[in-house]
């Protein structure tokens, strides 16, 4: 019986490998003139993809105090934050693409496809949670990989994971910064972790998952809910500031 069970997992793993190989991305070395022109145009723009996690039949977490009027679903919070961050970034001269602009279900492959077609210079995946405190940043745990002709779709992020770590550090600095030139900004506690992230793991661009959690005092009591508009604005302003730094570090186009 045990053997039977093992056989089934082994064949499942084999099927997974097969699918990964079938879905391999071909990164051609010899670009045609047309592709080169596209690349030049893309280089002139600084493209940021905003990925509002969840949507449609996937509501994500339930947020806000239970029974409270502000109680809402994570998919709504991530969408609204994506839309507001887009406005902030467009005002700063970024080209912004959202993976979803309404309450629709998107699988992880669809999200990665949007990012990879956009040839983005940064991708921010937005989550919100009641657990923990402050902002949680996550970068893919894939080991770095040198560019090569065939890259498996499921692990394409390995090409950019070092840049993703740098982007994570840039975001971290923006949240923990107390403001420059005398302006006073309340720092937001940040944790930075790495794990397997099915959407991001297929993205060929610097990508970080940003999960916003309530602000808590020393006893763990909630000071600002994730549904709090002022708190959200504070987080979004820090993200916009961080992306400005990211753009200037990349060499402003």
């Amino acid at each position: 019986m045990r053997n039977g069970w093992r056989r089934r997992t082994a064949s499942g793993a084999r099927a997974g490998v097969g699918i990964a190989l079938l879905a391999a991305v071909f990164l051609g070395q010899s670009a045609s003139a047309a592709v080169q022109a596209d690349a030049e145009a893309a280089a002139k723009r600084f493209v940021v993809v905003l990925d509002a996690a969840h949507g449609g039949s996937d509501p994500g977490a339930t947020l806000g105090a239970v029974g409270d009027e502000a109680e809402t679903l994570e998919k709504n919070v991530t969408l609204s934050m994506s839309q507001r961050l887009r406005a902030l970034l467009v005002a700063r001269g970024f080209t912004v693409i959202e993976t979803r602009e309404s309450d629709v279900a998107l699988d992880e492959d669809a999200r990665a496809t949007v990012v990879n077609q956009a040839q983005a210079q940064a991708c921010i995946v937005l989550h919100a949670s009641e657990a923990g405190s402050g902002v949680h940043l996550f970068v893919s745990s894939l080991p770095p990989m040198q560019p090569q002709a065939m890259v498996p779709w499921k692990t394409a992020q390995a090409l950019r994971v070092e840049s993703s770590l740098k982007l994570g550090n840039t975001l971290n600095s923006a949240f923990t910064s107390t403001g420059r030139d005398g302006e006073s900004i309340e720092p937001i506690p940040v944790t930075l972790g790495r794990t397997t992230l099915p959407g991001i793991d297929s993205m060929i661009c610097p990508a970080v998952a940003v999960e916003i959690a309530p602000l808590r005092d020393k006893e763990g009591k909630v000071v600002s809910e994730v549904t709090d508009a002022d708190y959200q604005a504070h987080v979004l302003n820090a993200l916009a500031a961080a992306l400005l730094v990211w753009r200037s570090e990349a060499g402003e186009p």
């Binding site: 084999r14 997974g16 990964a20 893919s140 745990s141 894939l142 080991p143 498996p152 770590l165 506690p189």
Partner: peptide, 23 residues
Amino acid sequence: ANGDARRAVATGDSGRAGAAGGA
């Protein structure tokens, strides 16, 4: 023979980029 499906995970220290990840 399932090396492809294996992934390592790691968390970094608070506020710092954890470089402990990597298969």
